[in-house]
């Protein structure tokens, strides 16, 4: 696997995304009602890490949810082998709130479409913004991100692998040119 983004650069992307979110005038207008939701698993980690930076001292803790989109995908039943879902953890409602949705890599747009379906089951948000670490292009659905860490152009068959602490032992984003091969080597 070749490294695309080093640990230090991942930290930079997280900071940059945090700045972009803070600079959004609609979010800045009502920071107390902001809710963050990450697509499991690494979108969830992004939401937690960026949430820690967005947390204002003395304010009540930001609502951060974790969305499992398995049950909302357009390709689960009959198209993919049946894996075990992780489950959704959303202990709050989204009605009339600004929401930022997090995913690690934006590619076809199908995951985000599924996530939007999932989100609205928890209420009617005032608006939803999308934040991604990597936008690799290759959209199949009309979806775009509002906050992007980095745009990358990679071969269609290649896979971008994102590792984020604390669930992974390190921060790193790499390019796996042969995803079928399996061996993963990270954190050089």
């Amino acid at each position: 696997m070749e490294t695309l983004v080093t640990a230090a650069q991942v930290e930079g992307l997280i900071s940059d995304l945090t700045r972009q979110i803070l600079a959004d005038p609609d979010i800045a207008a009502d920071p107390g009602r902001l809710a963050l939701v990450g697509i499991r698993r690494r979108g969830e980690i992004m939401a937690q890490r960026i949430g820690a930076r967005l947390q204002r001292p003395g304010a009540s803790p930001l609502d951060i949810g974790a969305l499992d989109i398995t049950m909302y995908r357009d390709d689960t039943v009959g198209i993919r082998p049946m894996t075990i879902p992780m489950g959704t953890v959303m202990n709050f409602r989204l009605d009339d709130r600004p929401v930022v949705l997090f995913d690690d890599v934006l590619h076809t747009g199908r995951s985000v479409r599924a996530a939007l379906d999932g989100l609205v089951d928890f209420g009617r948000p005032r608006f939803i913004r999308l934040a991604v670490l990597i936008d690799r292009g290759g959209r199949e659905y009309p979806i775009r991100a509002d906050f992007v860490g980095r745009n990358l152009s990679v071969p269609p068959a290649a896979r971008i692998r994102v590792y984020l602490k604390p669930t992974d032992p390190c921060d790193e984003i790499g390019l796996d040119r042969d995803p079928a091969a399996g061996a993963e080597e990270v954190c050089r």
Binding site: I84, D168, P169, C170, G182, E184, E185, V186, C187, R188
Partner: peptide, 10 residues
């Protein structure tokens, strides 16, 4: 170099 153990078979 820190190498991850092979991902557990899903």
């Amino acid at each position: 170099m820190n190498t991850l153990p092979p991902a557990p078979e899903r």
